[in-house]
Amino acid sequence: MRTETFALASGYGFNLEDKPLRPTPGAASRNYDIWHSDSQDVFGTSHGATFVLMPEETRRVTYDMCTQQSGYENWLDMWDMTTGRSICMYGTNGVVGLMEVVRSDDKAPFIKITLWQGPP
């Protein structure tokens, strides 16, 4: 398990396998698993990665909770990225992760990412 915290500005993205996990600029949907597009007003996934937006009242999301979800999405609207929201993330290589919105910001939400490789 590893945890990283950073702001994800528009036009930046990251890959779930990156070590250290740091957002970098570029053509987001072609280069990254998870990316932020201000022009489309979304957080998106590529390369087979997916999201599950947890209900607003969900607190303390665990690996087990994320592995039991379905209803995967490839896009999240910026209004879903409110402070306190939790989003399970899934990579094609078996990585299960959690994105927590620490602070909302239309231009660069501050997020905490926890990644698990298989069972903790």
Rank of each mutant, 00 (worst) to 15 (best):
R22D: 11
A49P: 00
G11C: 10
F110M: 09
A28S: 08
R103S: 09
L76A: 08
L8R: 01
P20V: 08
Q117H: 14
R60H: 13
G26T: 08
P119D: 13
G48N: 07
S46K: 04
C66W: 00
G118K: 09
A7C: 15
M54P: 01
T114Q: 03
M65R: 02
Q69D: 10
T82S: 13
W75V: 15
G44Q: 06
Q40L: 13
N74D: 14
V42E: 07
E4S: 15
S86V: 01
L53C: 03
G13I: 01
H47P: 02
D105F: 04
G84H: 06
M89S: 06
E100A: 06
L21D: 12
W75S: 15
I87Q: 02
N15R: 12
T24G: 14
F110D: 08
E17H: 13
D77C: 11
G84A: 10
D33R: 00
T83C: 07
R85L: 09
D106G: 14
L8H: 03
Y90Q: 01
L53R: 01
R59S: 12
P120C: 07
G94N: 08
N31H: 12
A28K: 02
V42Y: 08
G97F: 00
Q117R: 14
A49C: 11
R22Q: 14
Y63G: 04
T114V: 09
P120N: 06
T114C: 04
R103Y: 06
P109W: 01
M65W: 00
A49W: 01
M99A: 08
I34L: 08
V95N: 05
W79R: 14
Y12T: 05
S29E: 11
M1V: 09
L21A: 15
K107F: 12
S37K: 04
R59W: 03
F43P: 01
Q68F: 10
P109L: 03
T24I: 14
T24E: 15
F14V: 06
G118M: 07
G11I: 07
